[in-house]
């Protein structure tokens, strides 16, 4: 896969906007299969924030596709409010600085106001 097929792009557009926090990871938040995916998911658990996830080990198309979608070579990949924020090391730094909580809260508010106006 050198270029992202249009239908996959549409899938990611939908998916990353379907939840305030979306993680493409190896394994699941309950059963992570990689230390980096585990740490990324734990950042949100420590804030008490539920996350949507895609287990790329079960979804090879998403595994390769999300790298093209976000122009980022590694897994995990984290999206907040539909916006790509980075991998595990960036998310851990954001947790420490307090930026992560602020961003998640803004995404939750946005999702709420959209669902009430819809």
């Amino acid at each position: 896969m050198a270029e992202l097929p249009e239908e996959l792009k549409e899938r990611f557009d939908r998916e990353v906007n379907s939840q305030p926090v979306m993680i493409y990871m190896k394994g699941t938040p309950e059963f992570p299969m990689c230390g980096y995916s585990q740490r990324a998911a734990q950042c949100f658990q420590s804030l008490g924030v539920p996350v949507g996830h895609v287990n790329v080990l079960m979804d090879p198309e998403a595994w390769e596709g999300v790298k093209l979608y976000s122009d980022w070579p590694t897994i995990p990949q984290i999206f907040i409010g539909g916006e790509f924020v980075g991998g595990s090391s960036i998310v851990m730094e954001m947790l420490e600085s307090g930026e992560l909580e602020a961003k998640v809260n803004a995404a939750k508010e946005k999702a709420q106001s959209e669902s009430t106006t819809a």
């Binding site: 122009d71 980022w72 790509f84 924020v85 980075g86 991998g87 090391s89 960036i90 730094e93 954001m94």
Partner: peptide, 8 residues
């Protein structure tokens, strides 16, 4: 630059 841009 943002962290994402720096990492890229």
């Amino acid at each position: 630059k943002s962290a994402v841009e720096q990492h890229r």
